[in-house]
C-alpha cells in the first residue's frame, strides 16, 4: 500500500517541471537548515548537559561575526529563491502570443467553459497538448480560483473583471480541476476534469461534441444585432459611436486625455458601464447593458468584437486577438 503513495502530482504542463525544480531546491535548503539546527541542538544538549547542580558556565555575550554569517547566508539564499520564483511567476502570467483562447465563467458551484469554435462544457475542459491555452476568466458571483495541480497553475476568478492565465499541456490524460478559493456551500464540489488530448483527438472531439452551429464570435454577432449595437457602432465611425472594427488591442484615446489599450476587460466594462471610460469625441449617450447580458454572453460579444479585427485587414490585422481567432478559423 505504501508503495502506491505519490508525493508529487502528475507533471503534465510545460510549467510543472520548472515549479517542481524550485520545490526541490527549497526543500533541499530547508532540509539542510533543519538538520543543521536539530543536530546542533541535540549535540549541545548532550555534550553540555548539566552534570552537577553547581555548574556556572562562563557567559558568552555573542559574536558579531556569527550574527553576520547567519544573516548574510539566509539573505543570499532568500534572494535566490525570490529570483527563481519571480522568473517562474513572470512566465506563468505572460501568455505566449500564439495559442488559443478559452473562456471560463465560474459560478456557485460550477465551471462553464466556452471554446472559440462554439463548443461549451460544464466542469470539463478539453484541450490539445502542445498548444498554449490562454484562459480568460470571470465569475458571476463570488471569487473562485481555477486550479489544475497537474499543470501547477492557479488563478483567481473574480466577479466584475477578467483575469487571465495560461498553460501548455504536455501529456495526454485526465487531470483534476479544483476551485481553490472558498466560495460557499458546495465549494468542494466545484471540481471537474481537464482532458489533455493529442491535437488530432482534440479536433475529433471539437467536431463530435459540437452542438452549437455557431462559433463564439458568430453567436456574439447574433447578440450584437439583437441588441442593436450596430445602430451606433457601424463599420465606419458614426457621430453617435466609434467604430469597433480594429478596436481590440488598439490604444484608445479617452475623453480624459488618457490612453488605454482596448482589451477584453475594457470592452466588457464599456458594455456594462459605458460612461466609465468615454472615448474622446463622444458624449455619454450609450445606455448600460447591465442586467441584459450575462457573463457568458458578454464573452461572446467580446469574441465578436475581437473578430472584427479580421474583417478590416487593412488597418489592424496585426492585433493579437485577431490573429488568434484567425488561426482557429483556419484550423
Amino acid at each position: 500500500m505504501l508503495s502506491n503513495i505519490q508525493i508529487l502530482p502528475e507533471v503534465a504542463s510545460t510549467m510543472a517541471g520548472k515549479v517542481d525544480a524550485l520545490y526541490f531546491f527549497i526543500t533541499a535548503v530547508s532540509v539542510f537548515f533543519f538538520l543543521l539546527v536539530m543536530l546542533l541542538v541535540t549535540f549541545f544538549a548532550i555534550k553540555f548537559r548539566r552534570r552537577s547542580k553547581d555548574e556556572r558556565p562562563e557567559p558568552i555575550h555573542g559574536s558579531l561575526k556569527l550574527e553576520l554569517l547567519w544573516t548574510v547566508i539566509p539573505f543570499i539564499l532568500g534572494m535566490a529563491m525570490f529570483g527563481w520564483g519571480a522568473v517562474l511567476y513572470f512566465d506563468m502570467f505572460t501568455p505566449p502570443v500564439e495559442g488559443m483562447n478559452i473562456y471560463v465563467v465560474g459560478k456557485q458551484w460550477m465551471w462553464k467553459i466556452q471554446h472559440p469554435e462554439g463548443n461549451r462544457e460544464i466542469n470539463e475542459l478539453h484541450v490539445p497538448v502542445g498548444t498554449p491555452v490562454k484562459l480568460i476568466m470571470t465569475s458571476e458571483d463570488v471569487i473562485h480560483s481555477f486550479f489544475v495541480p497537474a499543470f501547477r497553475m492557479k488563478m483567481d476568478v473574480l466577479p466584475g473583471r477578467y483575469t487571465t492565465a495560461w498553460f501548455e499541456a504536455t501529456k495526454p490524460g485526465k487531470y483534476h480541476l479544483f476551485c481553490a478559493e472558498y466560495c460557499g456551500t458546495k465549494h468542494s464540489q466545484m471540481t471537474g476534469s481537464v482532458y489533455a488530448m493529442e491535437p488530432v483527438d482534440y479536433q475529433d472531439w471539437l467536431e463530435r461534441e459540437s452542438v452549437a452551429t455557431l462559433s463564439m464570435a458568430q453567436a456574439g454577432e447574433q447578440l450584437y444585432n439583437q441588441l442593436g449595437c450596430g445602430t451606433c457602432h457601424a463599420q465606419e465611425a458614426e457621430p453617435r459611436g466609434p467604430s469597433l472594427y480594429g478596436l481590440h488591442g488598439r490604444a484608445v484615446e479617452l475623453l480624459t486625455g488618457n490612453a488605454i489599450t482596448a482589451d477584453d476587460s475594457y470592452i466588457r466594462e464599456s458594455i456594462l458601464l459605458p460612461a466609465a471610460k468615454l472615448v474622446a469625441g463622444y458624449g455619454p449617450l450609450m445606455p448600460t447593458y447591465k442586467g441584459q447580458v450575462n457573463e457568458e454572453e458578454l464573452l461572446r460579444l467580446v469574441a465578436y468584437i475581437k473578430s472584427l479585427n479580421l474583417d478590416t485587414e487593412d488597418s489592424t490585422s496585426e492585433s493579437r486577438g485577431g490573429k488568434e481567432l484567425k488561426e482557429h478559423r483556419n484550423e
Partner: peptide, 20 residues
C-alpha cells in the same frame, strides 16, 4: 519547519501551485 516552509510560499512561482 514552519518558518522554512514559509519560504516555499514566499517564492512566487511556487506559491501559485501551493496557495490555498
Amino acid at each position: 519547519v514552519g518558518g522554512l516552509t514559509g519560504l516555499f510560499l514566499g517564492a512566487l512561482g511556487l506559491d501559485v501551485h501551493v496557495h490555498d
